[in-house]
Design a protein around this nucleic acid. Structure first.
Lengths: 121, 121, 121, 121
DNA sequence: GTGGTCTAGACCACG
DNA sequence: GTGGTCTAGACCACG
């Protein structure tokens, strides 16, 4: 899986990487149990500091998406715990996006289509 | 319209206000042409710095949601320009949310239902 | 509240500080809504790096014990969410301690007394 | 006695094994004088490095829980020395746990019940 | 070799 | 002034 950083984005680097890994897991680009690059390898590859990658891995770990051990590095968790609910933050953010999309004149059907594409794809 | 700040949120205050005004316009709580409180009035009401509200209004203006003039203060624009497209940032953010929701085990139908609820109103 | 670091401890500095703040909140040494020292002030006072303190505050924030904002610094949360349960990790750790205490020949009554003292104190 | 490693735990493997053996001795799953598996046998059984098991046994020996000799391998000590006190580290850790449990809204009675269960059982 | 921790120092957005 | 992010570099325990 290729991870790309947008250096002009307002989203911090460690969060951009986190988001792309979460999306990779969701789409299946990253399989359950799959090895992630080592902290050092990913830092080198992206031209960033190891601390930044380390922060990403610790966040993903605390969120239950990955596990780390000193022997094998980081891996996607075999069974990610499913809360079954949409978090308050994600609901708020979704509402904001839908509002903006609606005001942009994009029809509901097109938005739904995109959501389905992301969900199924 | 009532604007509420979540002091536990990581989203900056000026952005929280901006988001709620945009959502207000989208839902119709704020009508086209409707007068917004003055910067000082809103700041006073919310117990925050006038600079913060000012930042919100400048952002909303630059985004084309409101217009300001010295005589009438700030008003919701009569005709908000409709790009007809979903911005790249909103697409990325939507994809992130959908990925997380999916990994949480929430069924697609439930997500779609929420999107429709937000879109319709 | 005085925070003391044991430099010979195996527990990382950021975790020692975190633990002492949590214990301070529990005992009432730190009141709900009370201001914590700024990241810089605490770092200076303890003779450690600001990054280390920052890590502590972010952990406490993610655990729901404190809140931070750029204007006011960090504060103990007014209402800490109560799960009502003992976490798996704490149960395991408690079991380990009780086992060791028991093997040391300490009577159950003495252990219970200490637990009560910590709980009520 | 069955020893299980939690690969998601932050506790090092050698320590997880150590803890389970100590708990086994405390509950009586491991009797005084009872033979432990050889380092190689246990390592093989658990699919881990012999060095890791070796570290566990050396720790247990230094703590006075087991004894080793070339002839008989490792055995649970007949008479484990009883300090009669709770170590400073265990007190600190216990206080931390009680603090967190208390802040979680778990009643004292429930905590005491659990401690008794672990002590007696 | 791996992730985890820490330092010294810097710059940034927010308010 | 505040917390948040990031770098370059270092050392450590675990396995």
């Amino acid at each position: 899986m290729i991870i790309k950083i947008d250096e002009y984005s307002d989203i911090p680097i460690y969060m951009q990487i986190r988001n792309q890994i979460v999306m990779g897991i969701s789409t299946g680009d990253l399989k359950a149990g799959e090895q992630l690059p080592t902290v050092r390898a990913l830092a080198m590859e992206m031209g960033i500091n190891t601390m930044t990658v380390s922060k990403t891995y610790q966040l993903l770990k605390s969120e239950g998406y990955i596990m780390t051990d000193r022997k094998n590095g980081a891996r996607v968790r075999m069974e990610i715990e499913q809360s079954g609910i949409i978090s308050k933050d994600n609901k708020n953010e979704l509402k904001r996006i839908v509002s903006e999309v609606r005001l942009s004149g994009v029809p509901e059907s097109e938005l739904i289509k995109l959501v389905k594409e992301y969900y199924e794809g």
